[in-house]
């Protein structure tokens, strides 16, 4: 009893400080997002709570009669959060990010599953070299590639459209996915498909019916990892697409919510929080299977 309590206490003592440091920026974004300008830009105020202030034009205080709220939240405004929904293309950026991410994940799987399988099972020694070669494409920095690539994209007439990103993003998701799946397929006993082959399955059928279902953890790892790479990508997103309706979150938020030297801090913070929390929930729920995919894959 005491030893488990002590063990749990040690876990809290170790994980707690890390969690505080890693999550603090998000707590701070949450506090900032609901502040009035008068409150935010007053150096005499304690920054962690809300204070009464002269409301700026257009700042609504929906909680002003709810004096029971903690931290002075009755002085909070929701205007800066609703601003991004009503006065910017924010929802459109979220949608674009989801579309680009989804399509890129689909394209990645379509290319990487057969390639990974082939490298793991069908090709002999040269498969190893091709595998390492594919991994090496990671080393080429995007700052080097985006100049020639922007030329390719304008040749194809894709400039300023999200399709340019759908085309380019697989260039960094496929290498990783192939490399990871190659490792994952190696851990699956060859006897499984041999049995299917003996039973009269063709190799492609064996891949689809036998290998694919037991590879779900590995594939899930690829899905989550590729999606997170797409959401995080910034250099291509900002150079290939310039129309505000075609932006992803990464490009739209910095270009539309920062005007010259004017930072709309509250709106910026809300714009960061809104995608982060559901994504973190999603990643966390799949984390155990993600880990299973990794242990089965990249390191064998």
């Amino acid at each position: 009893m005491w030893s488990t309590l002590r063990e749990r206490g040690i876990s809290y003592l170790i994980v707690g400080p890390f969690a505080i440091v890693l999550a603090f920026p998000f707590y701070w974004m949450l506090v900032t997002a609901f502040k009035t300008n008068g409150d935010l830009y007053d150096l005499n105020n304690v920054p962690f709570t809300y204070h009464p202030s002269q409301a700026a034009v257009g700042e609504k205080l929906p909680f002003r009669h709810d004096h029971w709220l903690p931290f002075g939240f009755e002085n909070a405004t929701t205007s800066h959060v609703s601003f991004i929904f009503h006065n910017t293309n924010y929802l459109r950026w979220v949608e674009n990010t989801a579309v680009v991410g989804g399509l890129v994940v689909a394209i990645t799987l379509l290319f990487a599953v057969p390639a990974g399988y082939s490298l793991a099972r069908l090709s002999g020694r040269w498969g190893q070299s091709v595998g390492v070669g594919i991994f090496l494409t990671y080393l080429v920095p995007p700052t080097l590639l985006f100049l020639p690539l922007s030329r390719v994209i304008s040749k194809l007439g894709l400039q300023d459209r999200i399709w340019s990103l759908v085309l380019v993003y697989p260039s960094f998701t496929i290498p990783f996915a192939t490399w990871l799946l190659m490792g994952f397929f190696r851990t699956i006993p060859a006897e499984l498909e041999d049995a299917a082959l003996v039973d009269g399955c063709s190799r492609l059928k064996a891949l689809a019916r036998v290998i694919f279902p037991i590879s779900i953890p590995g594939i899930l790892t690829v899905v989550i990892f590729s999606f997170s790479l797409c959401v995080n990508e910034f250099v291509y997103a900002i150079t290939f697409v310039s129309g505000t309706k075609q932006h992803t979150i990464s490009a739209g938020v910095p270009t539309d919510l920062i005007r010259g030297d004017v930072y709309f801090w509250q709106s910026l913070m809300a714009a960061t929080l809104i995608p982060s929390i559901p994504l973190a929930l999603l990643y966390n729920s799949f984390l155990d299977r993600f880990i299973a995919g990794f242990t089965g894959g990249a390191f064998r």
Binding site: N232, F234, P254, T272, P275, I277, A280, Y283, L287
Partner: peptide, 15 residues
């Protein structure tokens, strides 16, 4: 702990 990974890096850096 996963939050910094989930947030698009360009916008979390603005934070």
């Amino acid at each position: 702990i996963l939050l910094p990974w989930a947030a698009p890096v360009a916008v979390s850096t603005i934070g």
